[in-house]
């Protein structure tokens, strides 16, 4: 069985940004998910390049995606282009975080 993008995306919701306490999918950290057969390539970002949390987020994404049935390999690419900003957070997550309106 070949996993689809939606399954992978759902699996990634177990990974949270520890500071914001919201999963990284709703925070907009996942830029792209590509699935070919059982090989998954995820392009993601984080709020800060040098923060130790960024490394753990990357590893967490690889771990959670690899637990999806049918996944053969996972390649996680961390990018800081474009730079993440709060406007990428989903509306529901923004409301739950009590964010000011994002201009």
């Amino acid at each position: 069985m070949t996993p689809d993008v939606a399954q992978i995306r759902d699996a990634l919701r177990v990974v949270i940004d520890p500071e914001l306490g919201v999963n990284i999918v709703d925070l907009g950290f996942i830029y792209d998910i590509a699935v070919a057969e059982g090989d998954v390539r995820i392009t993601m970002t984080a709020t800060n390049k040098g923060c130790p949390a960024s490394g753990f987020l990357k590893e967490g994404v690889a771990r959670s995606a690899s637990q999806v049935d049918g996944v053969r390999s996972v390649d996680v690419v961390m990018t800081f282009e474009p730079t993440w900003d709060p406007s990428m957070i989903s509306a529901d997550a923004r409301a739950s975080l009590g964010f000011a309106s994002v201009h």
Binding site: E19, G21, P52, A53, E59, R63
Partner: peptide, 23 residues
């Protein structure tokens, strides 16, 4: 709190649900 979270929950993130730093 942040460093304690990283040490404790960073290595298991993605495998199991984890609390927030604020927890």
């Amino acid at each position: 709190a942040f460093l304690t979270w990283l040490e404790t929950y960073g290595p298991v993130m993605g495998r199991v649900p984890t609390p927030r730093v604020q927890d």
